[in-house]
Simulated assay, not measured.
Amino acid sequence: MTKLDQLLHWFSDKKSVMVALSGGVDSALVAYAAYKALGDSALAVTADYKTLAQEELDSAMKICQEIGIRHIVISYNELQNEDFTKNDKNRCFYCRSELSEHLIDVAKKENIACIVDGTNTDDLGDYRPGITALRNNGVMSPLVETQFSKQEIRQTAKALGLSVYERPSNSCLASRIPWGQRVTAERLARIEVGEMFVKQTIGAKQVRVRDIDGVAKIEIGSDELYLFEKTNMADLFAKLKSIGFTSVILDSEGYRPGKINVIAD
Rank of each mutant, 00 (worst) to 15 (best):
E55S: 13
H102R: 11
L52Q: 11
T85F: 02
T85D: 00
N111S: 15
C92H: 00
C172Q: 08
S27K: 08
T132W: 05
M1I: 07
V215D: 14
N137M: 09
A20F: 06
A113G: 15
G125V: 01
G244D: 07
G118V: 05
S247E: 13
A20M: 07
R167S: 05
A185K: 15
Q155A: 09
N81H: 11
L236T: 05
G39C: 04
L7T: 08
I74S: 04
L7K: 09
A42R: 03
V248D: 02
G24P: 00
F245Y: 12
K89M: 11
A238D: 09
D265E: 15
S100I: 02
C114S: 13
T51S: 08
A20L: 04
T51H: 03
K158Y: 11
K89H: 11
A33E: 10
A185P: 04
K86S: 14
K15W: 09
C64I: 11
A174T: 00
E229R: 14
L21I: 09
L173K: 02
I115T: 02
K217G: 11
N87F: 08
N136E: 15
D235C: 09
S171V: 12
D48Y: 11
L236V: 00
K86D: 06
A113W: 13
I153H: 03
N87S: 10
N136G: 10
R208D: 07
L103T: 04
L236I: 01
G138M: 05
S75V: 08
K199C: 06
V73F: 14
I249C: 15
P142E: 02
G161S: 06
F93C: 05
L227P: 09
V262L: 14
R70E: 15
E219W: 03
P168L: 01
F148N: 00
T156E: 00
T156L: 07
M196N: 14
R190N: 10
F148R: 01
A33S: 12
L162H: 04
A185W: 11
M233L: 15
G254V: 03
S247I: 02
T231W: 04
K108Q: 13
D117F: 11
S242E: 03
H71P: 04
L43M: 07
K36P: 04
L143V: 08
N87R: 08
I249T: 15
Q155N: 10
T2Q: 13
D48F: 11
S12G: 02
L103M: 04
L188C: 04
S163L: 00
Y165I: 07
E253F: 11
H102K: 13
E195G: 05
K230N: 12
K158G: 09
K89G: 05
V19K: 01
E82S: 13
L240Q: 06
C92L: 06
Q151N: 13
F237W: 10
T246V: 12
Y127A: 00
R208S: 07
L8C: 10
K36D: 06
G194K: 06
T46V: 09
V144I: 14
L134H: 04
A216Y: 04
D83K: 14
I104F: 08
G39M: 06
L79F: 09
S242K: 10
G244W: 01
I153G: 03
W10P: 08
F197A: 07
K241G: 10
S242P: 06
V73I: 15
